[in-house]
Design a protein around this nucleic acid. Structure first.
Lengths: 186, 186
DNA sequence: ACTCCTCTGTAGCGGTCGCTACACATCGCC
DNA sequence: GGCGATGTGTAGCGACCGCTACAGAGGAGT
């Protein structure tokens, strides 16, 4: 068993755990126990906790982007927004988004490795959104502009989602957002 | 010196500290030292750490809302969005927003007291936004609908703000958002 | 003057944290 | 067979955490 494979397996398992239990209070011993190893081993395969967290964030982001890319293309831009929202608020993708929000919140304290990884992840993520909008009929330049708005609003709505009683209350806002995106993409 | 006054003074000082150093890694001893007391005293005036944090969040939110209410009324809705963004990204109000984002991120782990306080704060905050939009000429019902979009997008942009190189890159998005708000408020 | 009640300082408990020293196992290689 | 490199378990270090027991200081009420 080469070292890289073992490291990757641990990274994947740790990502599952982080998606489940959150990133903010994360500590090595419970995580290690959950993935069937010890903190000692995690720190053998990853140089320190930050190294592990950075790996987890990258893996989570990769998964999220893969899910977006696996989405069937939308008939038009308006549907694209609606479908993206549905995708981002169900299943694994929702947890990835929540993890990202937590990392971003940690990042705005200026702490590494969060800041760098979040910056890198965000670029890839917005890129995936742009491609999805382009597939739905938008031109590349306008899609980029719309994707920034889309990304920001989704993040904010994710935060509200935990607070609001039901997801239905936010649907209208998503429709308003879709109108805005349509207006941008022309 | 009545008990309530002392408690309020400590709460204010603790809020200053939290706005400066963030909420997520917050611990009592450094905070106490910074405000010239001891952890022992904080836990005398507040029943536990959660009680203190809840107070801090409320105070921060009150300050933020007070700043919004003190803003001169905007000439129209489009300017209102722009002025709100300027206000939310400068000075103390920016730090209040950042604190709120951190609390919300902690809230989406389902942890109390964050969830309850964030829910309560958000309601008051959106109310202030609605009033500001109404003052700028929007009707109440439409203003409410626009304020939800406004709030969510601002939150998301705050997260991006720490990541993006300069605030200028987000200005265009704020303009796009302003168009959307104008479209909603009619 | 005496007591009670509010406030504060000291000191420390029990626990968790990230991380590491050390011993041992296993395995390929010469 | 010897031997270094790689992986793993045990045990624990020092630091920090939220929180509390305890004693005392000071002032108000009687």
């Amino acid at each position: 068993m080469e070292t890289s494979t073992r490291r990757e397996a641990l990274g994947d398992a740790a990502t599952d755990y982080a998606l489940e239990h959150g990133l903010i209070g994360l500590s090595l011993r419970p995580l290690a126990a959950a993935v069937g190893t010890s903190d000692r081993m995690l720190l053998y395969h990853f140089k320190d906790k930050d190294d592990l967290v950075a790996a987890v964030l990258r893996i989570s982001n990769d998964r999220a982007i893969a899910e977006i890319r696996a989405l069937p293309r939308a008939a038009d831009v308006r549907r694209a927004v609606s479908d993206l929202w549905d995708a981002c608020t169900t299943g694994q993708l929702e947890r990835c988004q929540r993890l990202y929000v937590q990392a971003a919140a940690l990042g705005l304290l200026g702490r590494e490795p969060y800041l760098s990884v979040v910056r890198e992840s965000n670029q890839l993520w917005v890129g995936a959104l742009v491609d999805y909008l382009v597939d739905a009929g938008a031109t590349r330049g306008r899609a980029r502009r719309a994707a920034v708005l889309l990304d920001a609003t989704f993040m904010g709505l994710m935060l509200d989602l935990a607070v609001e009683p039901g997801p239905a209350a936010l649907r209208r806002t998503v429709r308003d957002l879709a109108n805005a995106v349509v207006a941008i993409t022309g």
